[in-house]
Write a protein that binds this DNA or RNA. Structure first.
Lengths: 125, 125
DNA sequence: CAGAATCCTTGATGATACTG
DNA sequence: CAGTATCATCAAGGATTCTG
């Protein structure tokens, strides 16, 4: 299948699916949580410490969404004080691959993008 | 470099860069416009016809952003009535690769995600 | 510790009308 | 044709407070 045909994945009916995924990982914290959880299970507070600037509310909400999507699993231990651990599911781990592909593209082309933005903003008007 | 090390692209300083890209392509129309423009230059009205549901305003805004980022180029022909054509820049075309990678992941795992969501929503409470 | 509930601000998007 | 301007709406996210 050619690259041109593959863009139908984005434009065609499956585009709804792709947009749903982008809505999930496109938000402010999701991808950060997944990357942080990659390779190590962590507790709620631990996650908050590793992700500077995230509020309790957004961490909680994001974890709930990711759990609902089956990308992370939540384990509550019956102890006092409570201990809850989060980790990537096998499916969650596979998301790392396209995420890194995108990240590498971003890092590689960022200089060009910034140059273009500067040129655009300073062009004669 | 291991996959685990590569997640630093997302978690580390370059994470800002990755988030900026996600903010751009994570919005409702950007990726759709890029996919539509892949392989063929198009006029404003043409784009609007190929992207169901997009408003003039959002098409205009999105095109401006993409142009500023250097992902598409805008060519205004000196004619009456006016004719303006948009096409992907070389850099814009390279974005297709990670976009398709993500799209393929989405399509492949969507059934599992929906199953997980249903299970989550119907679990005993 | 791990969260839920509430209130508030802001940015993204849509609808509509107007124009070079 | 290819936009811009303006107004309205709505959801994402942040700050704060409370609790099992």
């Amino acid at each position: 299948m050619s690259q041109n045909e593959k863009t139908c994945l984005i434009r065609g009916d499956s585009g709804r699916t792709v947009r749903a995924i982008l809505d999930r990982i496109g938000n402010k914290w999701t991808l950060l949580i997944i990357a942080t959880l990659h390779g190590s299970r962590m507790r709620f507070t631990e996650l908050q410490q590793h992700i500077p600037g995230i509020s309790q509310r957004m961490l909680s909400l994001s974890l709930r969404h990711l759990e609902r999507d089956g990308l992370i699993s939540r384990t509550a231990h019956a102890e006092v004080p409570p201990r809850v651990e989060y980790e990537l599911t096998p499916m969650g781990q596979t998301l790392i691959v396209p995420a890194i592909t995108l990240a590498e593209w971003a890092v590689e082309h960022n200089p060009d993008i910034e140059r273009s933005q500067t040129a655009y903003d300073t062009r004669p008007r």
